[in-house]
């Protein structure tokens, strides 16, 4: 399944200059990313009110994000993401999220749109605006990245947070993201669904978030 990024299928001997380049240590992995930007989103749904009642909530949100993915070997990398925005005055819109994980590249392909698929295993934690925030969680995810051109990327990421610690009740969250890169410019969409089961009697409250991202990609 795992195949060479630059063509193990090449039949002819490369020219001398190319060979010299190939012998140099490769500092940049095709999945390496440093992304900096801002998310604008809306989140809406239900939350616990009182001891077991329902409140409807709908709010906008603004977040700054720094995402770093760095491969330290052809197959393994580390994935770090910091997302948040400080609380303004006495509002409750402040939020901070930190995720860290190990990326494993387990499929890659060549061709006109070369790309690959990585799996992510990690942990994270958040605090702030959401009713389900204030927790630590494990992360399981899949990222698929395609390079349609030499300076463009399309990436799809899905992630599941199956359990949580530190918050009342149980939280299960799905996060999905579709992002594009053209040279330095980065843009993306995200969808998140969090299911928070809590209260007496126990109910499952759902918060859905839709957001767009604009930023710069310092690598790729």
């Amino acid at each position: 399944m795992l195949c060479g990024w630059t063509g193990s299928a090449r039949a002819t001997e490369p020219p001398k200059a190319e060979r010299r380049d190939a012998e140099k240590p490769k500092v940049e992995h095709p999945f390496d990313t440093v992304r900096l930007g801002a998310w604008g989103s809306t989140w809406a749904g239900t939350r616990l009110e009182g001891l077991g009642s329902v409140a409807h909530v709908a709010r906008p949100a603004l977040d700054l994000e720094l995402a770093v993915r760095r491969y330290f070997s052809p197959r393994f990398g580390v994935d770090i993401r910091l997302v948040g925005f400080p609380a303004m005055r006495d509002d409750n819109h402040g939020y901070l999220r930190g995720d860290i994980g190990i990326d494993v590249l387990f499929a890659r392909w060549d061709g006109a749109a070369k790309g690959g698929i990585t799996g992510v295993v990690g942990i994270g934690g958040d605090a702030g605006r959401y009713p389900f925030a204030g927790r630590a969680y494990p992360r399981l995810g899949l990222h698929a990245r395609v390079h349609p051109g030499p300076s463009s990327t399309v990436e799809v990421a899905v992630e599941m947070l199956p359990v949580s610690l530190g918050v009342d009740g149980r939280v299960v969250q799905h996060r999905s993201e579709l992002s594009f890169g053209w040279s330095l410019f980065q843009a993306g969409f995200r969808v998140s669904h969090a299911f928070h089961t809590v209260g007496a009697p126990e109910r499952t409250f759902m918060i859905q978030e839709l957001g767009i991202f604009l930023g710069v990609g310092l690598l790729r």
């Binding site: 604008g40 989103s41 809306t42 809406a44 239900t46 939350r47 009110e49 009182g50 009642s53 329902v54 409140a55 409807h56 909530v57 709908a58 709010r59 906008p60 949100a61 603004l62 839709l210 957001g211 767009i212």
Partner: peptide
């Protein structure tokens, strides 16, 4: 602005 316009802010008990 997009975030604010996209939805009216609310946080109301049902």
């Amino acid at each position: 602005i997009l975030g604010v316009v996209a939805t009216a802010c609310s946080d109301e008990p049902s």
